[in-house]
Simulated assay, not measured.
Amino acid sequence: MAKRKTKRNSKRNTPRNSIIVVLLTLFIGFYLVEGGWQDWVDPNNSSFSATTTQTGAEAGRLRVIFLDVGQGASQLLISPSGKTMLIDAGNNDREQQMVDDLHAYGVKHLDIVIGTHPDADHIGGLDRVIDHFEVGDIYMPKIQANTKTYESLLRSIKNKGLKVKTAKAGVQLDWDEAVDAEMVAPVAASDDSNNMSAVVRVTYGSSSYLLTGDAERESEQAMLSAGRELQADVMLVGHHGSKSSTSPAFLKRVRPKYAVIQVGEDNSYGHPKQTILDRLAKQHVEVYRNDLQGNIEIASDGSKYYITTER
């Protein structure tokens, strides 16, 4: 796929419509979560059987694709049997790119969609994705945002007749019989959206992945204290390589061989921070970056890894 230029568009509210946005968000949020975030399945989706075809060298592999969405994050997972999972979908200006990329990877529907937390650079494209694809289950943590981006996502979920399942530690995802996918965070409630990020650990055979969203030190410490299995050969570096994440203790527990940093070519945050790059280098971790290599795929046949990059 051709290299794309990063454009920032945060769909910010103007003062005169901010009150309307808040009211709409609260109304739609109440509709979706009345009585708690319900474990609800659309009966019309009960016959989901379509799969994404895996052919040739891809057959029998778990594919984890770190999509280049600029200064945002999105991971597409395709299981050995063709089941699909999308975690996050970049910022608002990447909505159509997300739809195009999913089509390019042969995705016809999504078995599981996860919005790790309500920041725009993670959920900005999810509304368009939900509008264009059949979706099985959708998971989000119990934290909301009074933003137009979040309100747009809730509206798309409502229009599809879906209800949100709670993303939290201990949730076992019913995805593919050959693959174990479990949420290991958030462990506890927090007022900080980053520390409410859904963190997913995926294992297939002897291969393992840890997909961290924007989880920061508070969440990392909670995961460590909870004693959950965190070791993973492939790690998504938390919060785009910010100093707020990837603490030495957490990195020591995970012990990754490969790390992926989802970061844009042009960003005002200075991500990834040199402190984090040095920390990864000290642990002899092989680092991949979307800003340098475009889309990054780290696939596994259950024992060996197969790494391909767009550039």
Rank of each mutant, 00 (worst) to 15 (best):
V200N: 11
P118H: 04
I157E: 04
S197E: 12
E134M: 00
P141T: 01
E220G: 02
D121I: 14
V107S: 03
A145Q: 11
G124T: 08
S156E: 08
Y150A: 09
D111C: 00
Y139T: 00
V187I: 12
H122E: 14
G161M: 05
V113G: 03
S152D: 15
P118E: 05
K148I: 10
G213C: 12
M140A: 04
D131P: 00
S206A: 13
G213Y: 14
M223C: 02
Y209L: 05
Q172D: 13
L210A: 06
A145P: 05
H132W: 00
G115P: 04
G124K: 05
E216H: 12
D233N: 09
I157A: 12
V202K: 07
V171A: 14
I130M: 03
I138L: 12
S156R: 01
I130A: 03
W175C: 01
K158I: 10
T149H: 06
S152Q: 14
V164P: 03
T147Q: 01
K163H: 10
A169P: 09
A222G: 02
S207H: 02
E229Y: 06
A181T: 02
I114T: 09
R228V: 12
Y139C: 00
F133T: 01
Y204L: 02
T212M: 11
R155Y: 11
I123D: 14
E220N: 02
V199S: 03
I143Y: 10
L162Y: 15
D214H: 07
V187M: 09
T116S: 07
A178N: 13
Q144V: 07
L162K: 05
Y139E: 02
V187S: 04
N159T: 08
E134Q: 00
N146W: 15
V171M: 14
L230Q: 01
E151P: 13
V179G: 00
T149C: 11
D131F: 05
S190K: 06
G106D: 14
A145F: 05
A226E: 08
E216L: 07
V171G: 08
R128P: 15
E177M: 12
Q221E: 13
R228Q: 09
W175V: 01
G161R: 03
D233M: 08
Y204R: 01
G136W: 09
E220L: 02
D176S: 06
Y204K: 00
V164I: 13
L162V: 11
K108F: 12
Q221K: 10
N195R: 10
E182A: 07
P186G: 08
H122N: 15
S225G: 10
S206I: 07
V129Q: 02
D192C: 13
I143E: 07
L211A: 13
K108S: 15
G170V: 11
S207R: 00
